[in-house]
């Protein structure tokens, strides 16, 4: 059976499938530094000119809704960047760019969309579907035991650097190979 049985009409797929570059800010703004991804999207929107070929979205805690569609869509971006907060044992506010191929394929990573969102799925998206996938991760400070809005100072201070990194790599017409 042919896989390309569905030829979508214009508008039948969302921007996040059709635009060449997709940047998703993930996290829960109610849990302190976990809101880093959402904060980066807000910062970029306020301080940068987002090119037309880029779909930039704060998906909060709802990233999986997009990723399912993205994985199975016949039309996909050529590059996807996931922005998230992670605990990698580094100094709070330190930034990392992670290639999903470098992450060990363990089932545990699929347990949560916040635990470096769905790394196995992102790896499959890259390896099977030919999409360049990267994760921009920020080391969090201690996460609050209870609901608490707002970033810690070290993580807030990382916002401009994260924006610079994203703009340099994704806000140009150059498409990485």
């Amino acid at each position: 059976m042919e896989a390309s049985v569905w030829e979508p009409d214009e508008g039948e797929l969302p921007d996040f499938c059709r635009k060449p570059t997709l940047i998703l800010g993930c996290g829960n703004i109610l849990f302190g530094d976990d809101g880093f991804g959402s904060a980066v999207v807000e910062y970029l929107t306020e301080h940068r000119q987002v090119p037309d070929n880029v779909c930039l979205a704060d998906v909060g805690t709802g990233v999986r809704k997009l990723l399912f569609t993205l994985c199975l869509s016949p039309v996909r971006p050529s590059r996807v960047l996931i922005i998230d907060a992670l605990d990698l044992g580094a100094a709070p506010g330190e930034l990392f760019v992670i290639d999903p191929a470098d992450i060990p394929a363990v089932k545990l990573d699929d347990f949560s969309v916040h635990q470096l969102p769905t790394s196995n799925l992102l790896r499959e998206l890259q390896e099977t579907c030919g999409v360049e996938v990267r994760v921009l991760a920020c080391q969090t400070g201690p996460l609050p035991e209870e609901v608490s809005c707002g970033l810690s100072e070290p993580v807030r201070s990382a916002l401009p650097a994260a924006a610079d990194l994203i703009a340099a790599r994704y806000f140009t017409k150059h498409v990485a190979t």
Binding site: E2, V5, F68, T69, C71, L72, N120
Partner: peptide, 20 residues
Amino acid sequence: NVIGILQAAPDVARRVVKVR
């Protein structure tokens, strides 16, 4: 996994994506 479903039943998978 999800990609496995796509490969096993591509017609169904894409119809599902469209309606979602």
